[in-house]
Design a protein around this nucleic acid. Structure first.
Lengths: 185, 185
DNA sequence: ACCTGAACACCGTTCAAGT
DNA sequence: ACCTGAACACCGTTCAAGT
């Protein structure tokens, strides 16, 4: 039966995990699907759109937990990190796809609503959510790049561990939330 | 006379401004220098190192103004934005180069020192500086991507302007600094 | 030491032609 | 509608050979 857009996106995600973003090529995706490269273009406009589809799939896994707003937002940030850490080079992929306006998932909707519901004025809530987004993405991008370098033995594993990375993330989120709280008084 | 590493980096920066990151190829840089592609490899290890050199040159233009610490840090963030906005696609270039540990300029040194001198404990100062860095980079990356889409007429210029972008940036920086200030009391 | 010429192993994308 | 086969215009990197 005929190929599907979803199959193409899944194949791309598989290539991403196995080979990394730099080696994620249309030809490799086609090969994994045992199809000629040109066949992909019946299901996907171009490579950039395909990558955005992969980003959408990854971001679709992020949920925003219920509960007191500070814990909920922190949970969202940790979920976002976890969803990203589950796929190689995903932070770089997601950041560039979203910057180019190709990501359809509205990642900031839930956190903005939670902050607004907590009594933070909407402009500040948007501001805080956007700041949180950029911080988590940037932080995870560095984590993933570092992990890769360590794996290649190009860098000593040094003082950083999974735990300290999460701790740093918590700290940054706390800083931003503390700043947003100032708009409550 | 013989080619120079600095000449290669400058040529790459020129290509970046003229054609953008996606079309910045070793072969184009070589052509601009009227030299064969292979000649570049006598002055630069590989493309990634060359890109890091370009990132270093851009970041070298960022200074941290003196004065009261809040204004100084805000000034630093605005200088960083200005240095990035001066070169096409620079935010994406700088973010990925720095994530890969190839950037030699220590961009966070000055802001960390300023925050520490203001009485903020060092761990919090590092945290705040890192958060500021990720926020500004992410923000400018989206600004630049949007500018590009508008230029290509692929997006309506919409509600965003230079002024509102700067205003958003000020807001985010304010949020982070307000969070860092909590560590003062 | 520095550069050329030429090659190697790849890319993304398009499109006539077949089914 | 969907895919193949084949092409087009590119890539980054290496390396013998020349100067």
């Amino acid at each position: 039966m005929a190929l599907t857009r979803a199959e193409v996106v899944d194949a791309a995600l598989g290539i991403l995990d196995e080979y990394g973003l730099a080696d994620l090529s249309m030809r490799r995706v086609a090969a994994r699907l045992e199809v000629q490269p040109g066949a992909l273009y019946h299901h996907v406009e171009n490579k950039q759109t395909l990558l955005a589809g992969v980003a959408d799939e990854i971001l679709g896994q992020v949920s925003c937990p219920a509960g007191p707003w500070r814990e909920a937002i922190l949970g969202w940030a940790l979920n976002l990190r976890a969803a990203l850490m589950a796929h190689r080079d995903s932070a770089e992929l997601v950041a560039s796809s979203r910057a180019f306006g190709l990501v359809t998932v509205d990642v900031l909707e839930r956190p903005i609503l939670m902050l607004a519901a907590a009594g933070i004025p909407e402009p500040t809530a948007r501001q805080a959510a956007s700041t949180l987004w950029h911080f988590v993405l940037g932080h995870v991008a560095e984590e993933q790049a570092r992990r890769y370098l360590v794996q290649m033995n190009l860098a000593l594993s040094g003082s950083s561990s999974e735990d300290s990375d999460v701790e740093q993330l918590r700290g940054g989120v706390g800083l931003i939330l503390s700043g947003a709280s100032a708009a409550l008084a």
